[in-house]
Design a protein around this nucleic acid. Structure first.
Length: 770
RNA sequence: ACCGGGGUGGCGAAACGGCAUACGCGUAUGGUUUAGGACCAUAUGGGGUAAAACCCGUGGAGGUUCAAGUCCUCUCCCCGGUACCA
């Protein structure tokens, strides 16, 4: 063994990174005649150091991409950064670094680290959100949406710090208090920009059966959990709007109206003041103030079933009885009409409320047919997109004292984000602190006016970046329609399940908008969606610096090499899974690669032997392994693909010489998407190949794999009692199998006579019922 | 509270309704080694036995089926999301 080369990945991994770059191995050719395959991974946020989670998220798509390339697809696997957002601004406030400098530095660091992974990402297509060349098109899209009345000014409850006079992100609230000044945060109606996603609600609902994608035979096939999740989030309810003495309520169960024994208004409902009698006024006002201190979730939970009586009554339009009008914050103003009829006999929450406040519970006939207007309402709300923050796309609008809100003309785009601002202003957004930037002339009347000083939600950036990727330098429109036609839709979109209700829904909405604007000829941007899980720290907790359980990819790469880290991440769990990092298991995976290395070194020494005899069984095992790995990669089940290769190696090691060169190369090829460095090195040094293994053609298994002998389990009354072996040619004959089963000594013990019934599943199992 | 996803050996996990625990880790014993490590071999769900036989086993309770981790009903526990973190 001593004369053999040892597996030392450091000796060749860096070499191949350079070599592949020089040979332009991973350069994507958009004009290739091959069929395109667009692999998209959610662009990562520029948080700083590369996390082992990034490796996990990207390695599996990379394995798929490499596999697809070896199967003659023109694989497009671009990359970019989600670079706007709150953490950059938090860094600015806490550490006095400018968000732009912080972000750009992070991008440089992360890119360097990413390139170590050995992915086939072509970095020339890189797109980042925080540069004017990108965000000017956010502004362009915003203006188009404004023209279609899809972008509009509205009001919504927001987290409000009364002392800082500003809206707060959920993240910046600690135990209901502002993170900076410690004041109690309240819920306040704030005017802001919205996108009318509700106009697309109906079209965003997934059909029961996946629909065919236009111009392609492939179907849009998203996981059922995502489709159901989004549909529930859109939450369409069909029902009636019924008038109770001027108050409109929405109900999905109009037939229960004769059991409606009281009405409940949300505290913000405009009728509350009107309905409240003098002696109840103080009580109701106090209740309103209490409600502003609760988050929406606290309100929905409504643990204490709080509420107050207004002092007024309205007539139940069906029974004619007077029923009391109450105010309670478990009724939300933003949903339905902000008022409900309470039917405690039928509804759990209403019953609890009625019990708590001693309100009548009246049986319903379930036959009532009240008058009302049919209406569909949605749980989905319009998307609030303006943020009172700095690090984002400036809203391309101008506020003019004479002309009101005026859009920035297209020719004046981009509205560039100014560098100099105060990040901790009071009572106004950061952008408003730069007077030079803020003050402009009205494009309409030319008189002094002010820019809109708010920025767009970062989800705006990520709703269309996958279209920008196809030509990031295009300067006439957000995306190059010709290239988009050729390279999109996305074939498979990898990302986190936390984006089910946000990002992916918004991206679908944008796609439908572009379709309506005739910029796209399809209305679903990704044919397939795959959601990944989480790599936890070795202690089973989410990795965090404060817990000290963070695995730094650089360290493990240094210890084992990139291939081992990649292989371990593929092997540790299914892509959708969540489990903890194990320093022991990765050593085992490294052991596997070492054994692979060594068995090929032995091949090298014996390769001069002619007329090599192959072991038939081993060749069959190899064929089965190729088949299994091929299927598993296609189904993104990398962990079982690796298990199959491990099984094969275990067999092969028993007879290392009994596989031909040709077959030995095939095994190397199916391992290559997982361990691109080691396989490339062996491909060249052992087999003397001149071209890259990654451009070789994936091995095919022709025809059926036929084994001589098949093992069939024999059950008696459903319990396994023996197994029999039978020649493959006879396996289809139930008589032959029965004969063998009934002759087994082990089985005979259980038989008292002839079995009552025999069930034989050909090639699988035989069950004797006695 | 609501919506989605999960509970399988000591651990990470496999299993088109058809041999539960593949593959890997860990552990034990043996080999190799000056020693340790590394490596190699064998064993490894629990009970039971000299060894077998056999019995019990996929969070819990029922059900469907020749056959259930897998399908159905109820239930307990854990994770993610709930709209300004990305």
């Amino acid at each position: 063994m001593s004369f053999m080369n040892k597996y030392i990945p450091k000796e060749f991994e860096k070499k191949w990174v350079k070599e592949w770059k020089n040979k332009k191995l991973n350069v994507f050719d958009p004009d290739s005649k091959k069929k395109k395959y667009y692999v998209l991974v959610e662009w990562p946020y520029t948080s700083g150091d590369l996390h082992i989670g990034h490796w996990f998220t990207f390695t599996i798509p990379d394995v798929l991409s490499r596999y697809k390339r070896m199967n003659d697809w023109n694989v497009f696997f671009p990359m970019g950064y989600d670079a706007f957002g709150l953490p950059a601004e938090n860094a600015a406030i806490e550490h006095k670094v400018h968000p732009q400098d912080w972000t750009m530095k992070n991008i440089a660091t992360m890119t360097k680290q990413f390139q170590q992974m050995g992915t086939m990402i072509d970095w020339d297509w890189m797109t980042i959100a925080c540069v004017p060349e990108y965000y000017r098109w956010n502004q362009w899209i915003f203006l188009k949406m404004y023209e279609q009345s899809l972008a509009f000014r509205g009001k919504a409850l927001s987290n409000w710090c009364p002392s800082c006079q500003t809206v707060l992100a959920n993240e910046n609230i600690e135990n209901g208090k502002c993170w900076r000044c410690g004041s109690q945060v309240i819920q306040k109606e704030v005017e802001q920009w919205f996108l009318k996603i509700t106009e697309y609600a109906e079209r965003l609902i997934w059909p029961d059966k996946p629909k065919a994608s236009p111009e392609r035979s492939r179907r849009v096939d998203w996981p059922i959990s995502v489709r159901v999740g989004q549909n529930n989030w859109i939450g369409k309810s069909e029902g009636l709007i019924i008038n109770f003495g001027g108050i409109e309520v929405f109900t999905t169960r109009p037939e229960t109206i004769d059991g409606a024994s009281f009405l409940v208004l949300s505290p913000e409902h405009p009728f509350v003041i009107k309905m409240t009698t003098k002696d109840n006024l103080n009580k109701v006002k106090k209740y309103f103030n209490q409600s502003t201190q609760k988050t929406e979730m606290e309100r929905k939970e409504n643990k204490d079933k709080t509420g107050v009586f207004t002092g007024s009554y309205v007539k139940n339009p069906v029974t004619g009885k007077k029923i009391p009008v109450w105010v309670a914050d478990y009724v939300l103003f933003g949903y339905g009409t902000g008022a409900i009829m309470a039917v405690p006999a039928e509804d759990e929450r209403d019953r609890e409320f009625a019990t708590k406040h001693s309100l009548p519970i009246i049986k319903t006939s379930l036959k009532a047919k009240p008058n009302g207007k049919k209406r569909s309402i949605y749980h989905l709300r319009d998307w609030s997109i303006s943020r009172q923050r700095y690090w984002g796309t400036p809203v391309p609008m101008i506020h003019c004292p004479t002309d009101g809100i005026v859009p920035v003309p297209y020719k004046d785009l981009p509205v560039e984000l100014p560098y100099e601002v105060d990040f901790t202003p009071h009572g106004k957004p950061p952008l408003a602190t730069n007077e030079k930037w803020l003050n402009v002339k009205c494009p309409n009347c030319g008189k002094p006016a002010k820019r809109d000083a708010e920025t767009l939600d970062t989800f705006f950036d990520s709703s269309w970046y996958f279209l920008r990727y196809v030509n990031p330098k295009y300067d006439r429109k957000p995306f190059d329609e010709e290239k988009v036609k050729k390279l999109t839709p996305v074939d498979v979109y990898f990302g986190g399940s936390e984006h089910t209700l946000g990002h992916t829904l918004y991206a679908r909405f944008f796609t439908k908008f572009f379709h309506d604007e005739k910029l796209l000829n399809y209305d679903e941007f990704a044919l397939q969606r795959v959601q990944h899980g989480v790599v936890l720290g070795p202690d089973g907790n989410r990795m965090s610096k404060s817990k000290g359980n963070v695995i730094n990819p650089d360290d493990v790469v240094d210890e084992y090499g990139s291939d081992t880290v990649r292989l371990y991440l593929c092997f540790m769990m299914p892509y959708e899974g969540t489990s903890s990092w194990s320093t022991k298991t990765i050593a085992g995976v490294n052991r596997f690669l070492t054994r692979v290395w060594e068995i090929y070194q032995k091949q090298n020494q014996k390769s001069k032997i002619k007329n090599q005899k192959e072991d038939e069984k081993l060749v069959i095992k190899l064929k089965k392994t190729i088949k299994k790995v091929t299927e598993d990669i296609g189904n993104i089940k990398m962990n079982t693909a690796i298990a199959a290769m491990m099984e094969f190696l275990n067999e092969w090691e028993r007879n290392p010489q009994e596989l031909s060169k040709e077959n030995a190369k095939k095994f190397l090829q199916i391992l290559s998407p997982f361990a691109p460095f080691l396989t490339e090195e062996i491909w060249h040094s052992v087999f003397g190949e001149k071209n890259s293994i990654h451009l070789s053609t994936w091995p095919k298994v022709e025809g059926e794999i036929i084994e001589e002998e098949v093992t069939i389990p024999v059950q008696v009354n459903g319990k396994l009692r023996d197994t029999i072996k039978i020649q493959n040619s006879k396996v289809k004959s139930q008589k032959e199998v029965e004969k063998l089963a009934l002759n087994s000594e082990k089985i005979k013990k259980y038989l008292t006579g002839k079995p009552k019934k025999i069930i034989y599943v050909p090639g699988k199992i035989i069950n004797l019922i006695i």
